[in-house]
Amino acid sequence: MKAAVVIFPGTNREHDVCAALKRASGQQPAIVWHRDTELPAADLIVLPGGFAYGDYLRCGAMAAHSPIMREVKARAAKGVPVLGICNGFQVLTEAGMLPGALLRNKTLSFICRDVHLRVENSQTIFTCGYAAGQAIRVPVAHGEGNYTADAATLDRLEGEGRVAFRYCGAAGELTDEDNVNGSARCIAGVFNETRTVLGLMPHPENSTDPLLGCTDGQGLFDGLVSALQ
């Protein structure tokens, strides 16, 4: 599996996701600069975490209009999978590639800690490495991860199996306390209509190295490799 990782000024998690992708696929991803207008041949496009354009105006708003995003949209329309993590998720919503928006955390504070996620739909290229209902532990690191959308959109996402992950307790239970940023219906990640675009606030790439004590995020990258190779 060949991946292309897009970086914007202010992106800072590209090395983390490259390491996770390389661990899973054995191949070093290509790095693409936001001013580039062409993407290399790739089985997967990744928008990593960070603070693209300093989060000016709204998180992801400037990056969504970068030259490279035209190409990302064109590839996504052809069915090339796109994964947006954290700031990458914010960029995808601002670019109109995923529904909803990410607001300031309910606590108003930046949250950097491990959380549990419940895998809601395992029938996708991104989540086929997990079982539906499985709870995994991965870190979050964001100030604006409070997912919101109107009720009709939330109903549609749930009805169509487009909620990828929800914040939960260690056993997969949904509580207000575990919904760390106040997201609507505890949503941590969503798919587009064809389930070929995934955006999520938590960082599965930072839960892939045994040295860091937990490798629950590895399933996402292994799943992608098995689905796309």
């Binding site: 105006l57 709204r58 708003a61 209009h65 601002e94 529904p99 928006a101 607001l103 959308a149």
Partner: peptide, 9 residues
């Protein structure tokens, strides 16, 4: 419409 406001929110 294109940049200054996010019509979702």
């Amino acid at each position: 419409e294109q940049l200054l406001a996010n019509p979702v929110i």
